[in-house]
Write a protein that binds this DNA or RNA. Structure first.
Lengths: 339, 339
DNA sequence: TTGGTAACTGGAAATGCTTCCACAAGATAT
DNA sequence: ATATCTTGTGGAAGCATTTCCAGTTACCAA
């Protein structure tokens, strides 16, 4: 059986309270007593039982992340960011795979009621307003990542200005007929990117042509076409096919995600349309695939977002910071071969 | 404050033991009493405090996964497998990002001593023998995924036979001069795939030419070249450059990972070598990129591996099964455009 | 000496469960 | 009517900590 605080106390000939003070470096302990306790700890190879500690402290030192697991690189970098901060703190990360609204709800309830975690990160998923309220009532810190909501802390990229810059980049290259491809219309990031797209057109005196705005909901509802909220390669391809049938083709496409851009490029290749000379393509995200395929794109600083998100939630947990804050990071244009 | 078992007991006018029996569906409780308790639970919106429960049961209902986070799809599917099983059981998944031998050790120690989890999954990392022993002594179930070790449970793909089949596929297409590209020599899966490769050559009366076996350690030691144990696109490209300089070029390449195959294809493209007519390429893993790039490959059934791994560790935790077992799954040839 | 204070220390109580033991009530056998 | 099971039930003890309160020392000033 593993040693407990009592064993340490007995060996060091002190009370259990003193052992506790030693391991939690409390200021009110004599340095030599602390030394003695530490020797006993080493001798017994004692390590505090985190669960018992959690019960006594009413804190679990655990953060829950509820997230889907779409594209690799995006989340890879995000997790690297999490771990980068977490590894120096005594916190663990519990991981819930968000598989759609109903499974999300299960996890919202679970985190709210089981008291297993001290804070929750909701990543790339929409949290319904009633749950936001529940989190607030339960006093359980919640931080949104890659989504925004005025009633709660969020950390995300400047979708609108990123899209604005992407579009401006195309306009700067001389394009006048620019299309946009996006996932489902109800995706918040998609909407925000669409806003930025329209603003850029307007700003440069180009009119918005509804035929040049293709979203996933304009197609079927097969699994292939609806997965990832319509942000997938199939939709990218389907969108291009539609655009190529237009009497007056666009000369450039802004894809609201790299994976859409990739699908678009595949369709352009099979149609024999040269990239970028006949059709320029710009993506969004900078996933691994984008660098492999040399896609020009707007990069999201996922690693930084990961660090910020964890730091923010730790602040809320440890400093009981109740201010609601939204942090927005800028995207960066990564110019490659498709524009 | 959230309701406790005492509140429920009071409302239902029963003892706390009875409430406990109700929530743990013990057989020794009268159905009508159980009903009454359940009504009280619903009324109070009571949910057991998992940490307190963990302390009392000496079980945390948590599984720790220690894993690197290389390629997206591979781990995506694995996690889907985990979650697929876990979602129907009341277990949580804690997640440790393995960032190299020293960080791995930290997490081995942590899981061993903190009693935070009931079992550990070590994924795609080597566990030193002394730690294997420690896990056994501590009676903490450990299952290896994507690695093998005779002293502990492992779940992995038949690397050797997969490589054998991949090579046989190339031989069947008429190739006589077949090269193999792999990551670092000390990678176990790499070694096993090399074995399968050699066996296939031998079986079909082809001799093994050492010039046709390129591994990551034959190149520099920059970050780019050594990342992921040498299983990366840069090594794939470098290997092809080396092979193309040979007086007698191979006509086909077996890459020990899709990402190597991808790098190889990039180098072949820039050298103007046609695929597959001048050089056939086959990969291993079937990551997302492989389907995007139409790479012929040996598919690893990652989803199944994920399910099996969780099931195995739950068996060890719940049934105290101490038998050591290795489960090996077959790979499947996915024929695409590169052979 | 004595009194007062500051610096430490011991250990009971509390955390919210599970489990076990004792016991009550009812059913069955004698 | 009595003895013996069976089935449920209440609640104390235990899980391994933290925290708080009541001491105990040691030291210094009066």
């Amino acid at each position: 059986m593993a040693a407990t605080i009592y064993d340490v106390a007995k060996l060091a000939k002190v009370g259990i309270g003193t052992v506790s003070r030693a391991i939690n470096n409390s200021p009110s302990i004599k340095p030599e007593t602390k030394k003695r306790v530490e020797r006993a700890i080493k001798k017994l190879d004692y390590k505090p039982h985190v669960i018992a500690r959690g019960l006594a402290r009413k804190r679990s030192n655990t953060i829950a992340a509820i997230m889907p697991f779409y594209t690799g690189y995006f989340y890879h970098e995000l997790l690297r960011g999490f771990q980068n901060v977490l590894s120096q703190r005594e916190y663990d990360l519990i991981f819930y795979y968000a598989d759609g609204p109903s499974s999300n709800q299960i996890y919202f309830d679970r985190t709210l009621r089981e008291k297993r975690c001290d804070g929750v990160l909701a990543i790339s998923i929409d949290v319904p307003d009633d749950y936001i309220e529940k989190y607030q009532k339960a006093n359980l810190p919640l931080v949104l990542v890659d989504r925004d909501n005025p009633n709660i802390d969020c950390i995300l990229v400047k979708n609108s200005s990123g899209a604005y810059n992407a579009t401006t980049h195309l306009i700067g290259a001389g394009h006048k007929r620019i299309a946009m491809i996006s996932g489902h219309k109800n995706s918040r990031p998609g909407q925000q990117r669409f806003e930025g797209f329209k603003q850029a057109l307007k700003k440069h005196g180009l009119s918005f042509n509804p035929d040049y705005y293709i979203t996933a909901d304009q197609f079927g509802s097969s699994d292939e076409l609806t997965k990832n909220d319509g942000f997938n390669a199939e939709i990218g391809s389907a969108a291009i096919e539609k655009l190529l049938q237009l009497p007056e083709r666009p000369t450039a496409v802004f894809a609201a995600a790299d994976i859409l851009a990739f699908g678009a490029m595949r369709a352009l290749d099979s149609a024999g349309v040269a990239i970028p000379s006949e059709m320029a393509v710009i993506g969004f995200d900078d996933i691994e695939l984008a660098s492999y395929m040399s896609i020009t794109t707007m990069q999201q600083p996922m690693f930084d977002i990961g660090c910020l998100a964890i730091n923010r939630i730790l602040e809320k947990i440890e400093k009981k910071d109740t201010i609601i804050r939204m942090e927005q990071l800028s995207t960066k244009l990564i110019q490659r071969q498709t524009t």
